[in-house]
């Protein structure tokens, strides 16, 4: 049980002037319960990749295995497509654009109802998901369009969380949020991950990759160039340069300190606090 890509290629708009190989021979395995980051520049194929996980896109070549479900090239229909989409929930970029119901609660319950939950069960799940993302009850009966930008984002994400997926796929979930909102959002995903859900997240924010993710999948031109632990990834100067990836500020600063002779352990730096602790330790040893 995991997500597995076997030699997957995806041809965008074949036989048209816009034809373009968006994925090129992808081999990838993502284990259950992990927190994986997908990184790379716009146009590197990240979104195309994750849309294969719940069969919004079908491979032109190769196959994708998600849990017990198989999405293979050249097969017209995906077996048990609805079940698959409940198993692997996908949150799009700027998901607040998918809100449409009269009330916040109804909008979140929309997903579970589509997956054949009864009205009551759907509402229960919706309430649970809303409280998890930190939307208070007073807002349940409001129109989603009356909420602030950050609240809309939470409601939209709750709409997927309410499906209780085994795999949660997120496409730049913190884009456009203010720093505090982004922080809360990330710790929410960490909580969900710790409860056993596999989380796969596309992001440009390397601080988040370093702090929260077990592994980073680096993409370029439709190919995977590297799969690595974040702390190892940011040591690979050559790779960083090749894909012009900007390392977290704490890492670049730590590297400068190391270059000037400070004895820091890069692997132990995960976030600002551990970074400061490391400096403190190095200084006191001296």
């Amino acid at each position: 049980m995991s997500v597995k890509f076997e030699n997957v290629s995806f041809l965008y708009l074949p036989k048209t002037p816009f034809e373009h190989l968006a994925l090129d021979g992808i081999d990838l395995e993502i284990l259950d319960g992990t927190f994986t980051a997908i990184i790379g520049h716009t146009g590197s194929g990240k979104s195309t990749l994750v849309q294969h996980i719940n069969a919004l896109l079908r491979p032109s070549k190769g196959k994708v295995l998600v849990g017990d479900y198989v999405i293979a090239a050249n097969e017209k229909k995906v077996n048990k497509l609805q079940e698959l989409r409940k198993y692997a929930g996908l949150v799009f970029q700027f998901p607040e654009y998918q809100l449409f119901e009269e009330t916040v609660l109804k909008d979140v319950a929309f997903g579970p109802k589509n997956f054949k939950d009864s009205e009551q069960v759907a509402l229960e799940k919706a309430k649970k998901a809303l409280s998890l993302v930190g939307i208070e009850e007073a807002l349940f009966d409001k129109s989603p369009f009356e909420l602030s930008g950050g609240q809309k984002r939470r409601v939209a994400i709750a709409g997927i969380i309410a499906l209780e997926p085994q795999i949660l796929v997120l496409d730049e979930p913190t884009a456009g949020l203010d720093p505090q909102g982004a922080k809360e959002m990330m710790s929410l995903f960490k909580t969900i991950n710790e409860r056993g859900t596999t989380v796969i997240m596309i992001t440009h924010d390397m601080d988040n990759v370093l702090k929260y993710c077990d592994r980073a999948v680096v993409m370029k031109d439709g190919k995977i160039v590297k799969i690595e632990q974040p702390s190892e990834l940011f040591k690979d100067e050559e790779l960083l340069k090749e894909i012009s990836l900007e390392e977290p500020h704490i890492i670049s600063f730590a590297k400068k300190l190391i270059a000037s002779g400070m004895n820091l352990e890069l692997n132990d730096i995960k976030d600002f606090d551990s970074f400061i602790a490391q400096i403190g330790k190095a200084r006191s040893v001296k």
Partner: peptide, 16 residues
């Protein structure tokens, strides 16, 4: 493009 995006987002919420 937007239509396609919203259709995909709603499909992810179980809309057929």
């Amino acid at each position: 493009e937007e239509t396609e995006r919203i259709m995909k987002a709603q499909s992810s919420r179980g809309v057929d």
